[in-house]
Design a binder for these strands. Sequence first.
DNA 1: AGACAATAGTGCAGGGACCGAACGAATGGG
DNA 2: CCCATTCGTTCGGTCCCTGCACTATTGTCT
Lengths: 393, 393
Amino acid sequence: MQSQGQVRSANLAAALACLRDGGPRSRARLAADTGLTKATVSSLVAELVERGLVAEGAVHRPGSVGRPGTLVELDGRGVCGIGVEVNVDYLAVLALDLGGAVRWESRLALDVPGLRPVEVLARASAMVAEARAGGAAGAVGITVAVPGGVQGSVVRTAPNLPGWVGTDVAAGLADLGLPVTVGNDADLSALAEVSAGPHAGVPDLVYLTGEVGVGGGVVTGGQLLRGSTGLGGEVGHLALTPGDAPCGCGRRGCWETVVGLGALLRAAADPDDPLRDPGRDLEDRLADLLARARDGDARTLEALTGIGTGLGVGAAVLVALFDPAVVVLGGYFAVVGEFLLDPLRTALAQRVDAADRVALSTLGFTAAVRGGAHVALQPVFTDPTTVPLEASA
Amino acid sequence: MQSQGQVRSANLAAALACLRDGGPRSRARLAADTGLTKATVSSLVAELVERGLVAEGAVHRPGSVGRPGTLVELDGRGVCGIGVEVNVDYLAVLALDLGGAVRWESRLALDVPGLRPVEVLARASAMVAEARAGGAAGAVGITVAVPGGVQGSVVRTAPNLPGWVGTDVAAGLADLGLPVTVGNDADLSALAEVSAGPHAGVPDLVYLTGEVGVGGGVVTGGQLLRGSTGLGGEVGHLALTPGDAPCGCGRRGCWETVVGLGALLRAAADPDDPLRDPGRDLEDRLADLLARARDGDARTLEALTGIGTGLGVGAAVLVALFDPAVVVLGGYFAVVGEFLLDPLRTALAQRVDAADRVALSTLGFTAAVRGGAHVALQPVFTDPTTVPLEASA
DNA sequence: AGACAATAGTGCAGGGACCGAACGAATGGG
DNA sequence: CCCATTCGTTCGGTCCCTGCACTATTGTCT
């Protein structure tokens, strides 16, 4: 705490957070809720209006005697955060405004196989430029989700994106002139789950995403678990059943060899089955598998039950260690979740007391970009003075 | 941030933390290190001196040209925090002053078997009173370590202290007139490890303590992992090898049935061996076992190797999930650590990359009380204005 | 209809805290 | 002996919050 300038920032942030979390209210209510005086709140609100972050709304319906207050509400229009997801076969962009509304969403399939990182980032940059020209005016930052480990803005490990190791993602998007941060996709998805949807505000949550492998993101005490080398919460290579199937990491029995999408497809179909045609799009094959399961195909159901049980075994460890309020299943787990939850809960109940703390993600495949956009917005909530005063009188 | 009063508190805290972490220095250095101006630092130091938290030391030897500065240093004498440990067969008290020096240490064996919590707490209260009359003047708070789960100041679960469930520990020490907080013993031990000793300042650390069961405390990002119901970091009942030995929790295959002290004694000795005589003190039996191991007794060594391997299997999971800079072994693990580390590292290396991140605790059985005393001191560092101005001068 | 109570929002003086600059103090070097 | 250098303090200025007074607006009671 250097000087009173930071007091101002902190109080602006407190007022803004209050409006974000509790919705519109009068200046008097805001004063009561923040513990500041009405005079101070008036001054804070005036500054936030000048910065285009809040706006006066309707007059509050009286309800009881006394002069009615003028509602003050978050005005997200002037400011938005942009999330970008780089994945094996697609790019995605999503922009959130300050109020949490989606202002832009786009997706681009990467059907050219041998594309280099620089070229992919150039396309991502173009997508962001398009977003800013479209609905995402007033961008304050970009956060990029990558399926791998990240240090600073450099990709350090990326089992499914081997060519990206060593790439400085921020440098590739520097031409946009916005601050760029980079994060693991599962971590950002976990943040998305605690920032929106049914689990908004939950301070202790574990997110599991089923892809080819298994990704994990852990939020404890409202903070993302990072660990000493940034690999905290990485669940894919947990050694739960030593001596089992070989894993891409060189070891055996990693959890993702049990519950990854590859394991599901192997268990559900013979090698010559179209489900296991590596030339087909994974989402299509997953849709086929879901259709079979809904038709009641015995082998498919059995495979899914196996995945659910395997998930339960691992989730038991996660629940015991992290004690989360909920374990959220995303990625392909959410797609076929209806067939996973029962065996998962059964396996969980045999190992821990809290077997009902499992839920399916409702954010679908946009979780990572949404989390990225959310992260990009954080500086505004931390210090609203980062947004310049509007020139408008 | 309400007003500038809190700015003052924050800056006092910053100055104090700077002196604690970086040692004595002149006001000018302190100004440079905190980013505040010399004028402000002079004022802050004057107030900290008035509160008895810092003192002027020797004149700094010049070194180079210019007026030499007066060293300012932490003065711990006026203030101390008290840690109390309630365990199955003993009570322990330890007082730390602000500088981290031990000002009092005492231990009391509880040889009366059927003692009720109220009676135990009365003895603890007397021990604290004795400490305050002895070396621990200026106590600012008490933190009690209990071997179990805690909510607020009430014991919620205590497998080894069944009579204590529901006990309000703070109420039992209320007569001392000091703020009392209560925590899990392994959690407090973990905090002790990051506050003193070779791992001081490490922000990501896992602490494992071998007792009858196994306790765990996890620090991530400098914060204790608590979880949604306060059970985060509880490692004893991890389900690592389902279908194994029955555990006191009613399930099977819990980790503590593999690596707890009971498992070691069962593996190392026949039922009629004095090692397994339940009437003998556990520490004595442990000393005997250690002597046998040092004599090279094959069965003992084999049992210890088994424990080490079992520890490695579980530690692999912890390392993968929490990505700590180090896993510290305390309790009985530290006592027989010389025989555990090799098999532990071998098992770990088969499962994760970072197999060298294991160390033995050097704090011995005082870890929990030390952590408690440290926690009791925290409010002073968070807000130095909680310490009253001294009447002197 | 009019008076009164209750609530919302603003204006103004006051005080606390930090900053920047200037100044005295203490030391080593030339 | 003078000067550059560094330390610590003093003093005026600025910023921001507070508390109180004051106006504005509405409902209720007589």
